[in-house]
Design a protein around this nucleic acid. Sequence first.
RNA 1: GGAGCCAUCGCCAAGUUGGUAAGGCCGUAGAUUGCAAAUCUGCUAUUCACCAGUUCGAGUCUGGUUGGCUCCUCCA
Length: 466
Amino acid sequence: MQIYDSVQKKKLTFSPIVPNKASIYICGPTVYDDAHLGHARSSLAFDLLSRTLTSHGYEVTLCKNFTDIDDKIIKKVEETGKSMEEITSFYIDRYLSEMTALGIQRANIEPKATESLDAIEAMIQKLIDKDIAYVISTGDVYFDTSKDTHYGNISHRVADDEDSQSRVEHTTEKRNPKDFALWKACKGEDDICFDTHFSRGRPGWHIECSAMIEKHFTGNGEYSIDIHGGGADLLFPHHENEAAQSRCATGHELAKYWMHNGFVQIDGEKMSKSLGNSFFLKDALKLYDGEILRYYLNSIHYRNDFNFSEEELQLNKKRLDKLYRLKKRLMPGKASLPNKTFKKLLLDDMADDLNISMALAHIDEMIATANDTLDNNPKDKGFKKETLANIEFIDEILGFGGKEPFSYFQIGVDDALKEKVETLIEARLEAKKNRDFSRSDAIREELTALGISIMDTPDGTLWEKS
RNA sequence: GGAGCCAUCGCCAAGUUGGUAAGGCCGUAGAUUGCAAAUCUGCUAUUCACCAGUUCGAGUCUGGUUGGCUCCUCCA
């Protein structure tokens, strides 16, 4: 298994801390608003990683956090008058249900910042005790970046005089311009804050992840976890700071491998809330089935930027349709075992830093070969069972193709339409039987107008929503 | 201004350690079909933004040019 490490900037052979086990930590969302396609892509990328490792026989422990203490959340509390808990639990629930719609498997551990305050406080205290962190007069706690000789190793950022951590929040008490806040003391009476030995306040963003990792993973004395993942925008400062905190607090490195996914772009620009060009998942899921979105968003390599377009999505649906048309031909039936060669191809493709394009190409070839075999020998039961097993394996490792094929082609069709379609098809069959082709063609046109396409097979007429 | 990523057929997109360009869509010819649709088969980049270099050999390495994107502020 080869994965690309974004710190060393090359593919490395995955060699976990504990043989046959993989520990992964993914930076999850800050829950103050709806998730957009960018969040989906990141989740999808690491879902693919987790599934791939599992398929290769690793026992995967996936941890994905929720940042539920944050300035933006507090702002939302002030704006809406709702409680912080109300807001965060609403967005967490929505996030989880949207991710489920995309076929993303739940993480084994889903910690929240509010539930990790003990670990956060302990880590900050440790850093203060070592004089790596310091408390200023306001009660804010800062990390002294000059104490960490490896600071900059993650993002390869060279030291400069500019205050890269905070252009807005200047304080003269910082020892170095690059120092960043571990803890922000509360300022007003109504602030949302928590008591600690050093001050009453709330955690900075970076420390949350470091503390949660230390809380949930033991590591091996050299690293805490195998893989740390997240969006490419988190490389600096978030992951740089996480790495520094953990290194200084624990004496060992945070993660053995770092993986970062590319962005979703709209018209060539990064999709982000601050740019206001977000395509929210809740809206996308109203328009398209989750499985198609999954297929499309995962169709290009996770490290590349992804330019979203509805036309491309439709083209990808066509490609997925082919898999389901083949599946229709295999029904009803029971899966046996997947073809060994095919299974190995997919495993090898994905073992190469998740080369999904190669895997999809191999799937297309499998589909064509299978259709050809079935054209020549429609009754080959053993082959049908094996092919069905191939599709089950695709679903296992890539997370699509698992639906019942007839219902796949009827997504969005209500019972009334379904009944109408079936009546029309029967009438058309009757007309065909009487060789009344002008009538049967007229019925076909009527169906087309309803958005239904039909196909005659030896076993009868099948229909799909086009 | 500093750091980095990317540039492959009309469109999307792969290309292990340099060895002679996957796959999908579209198009096209055919098989099949009452006609379609679906399915299958054939064809569809002597060429990888541009220029120079290293090499027996480069899309793949080096240097430069142009264009696009990202990070340096919250961000998946």
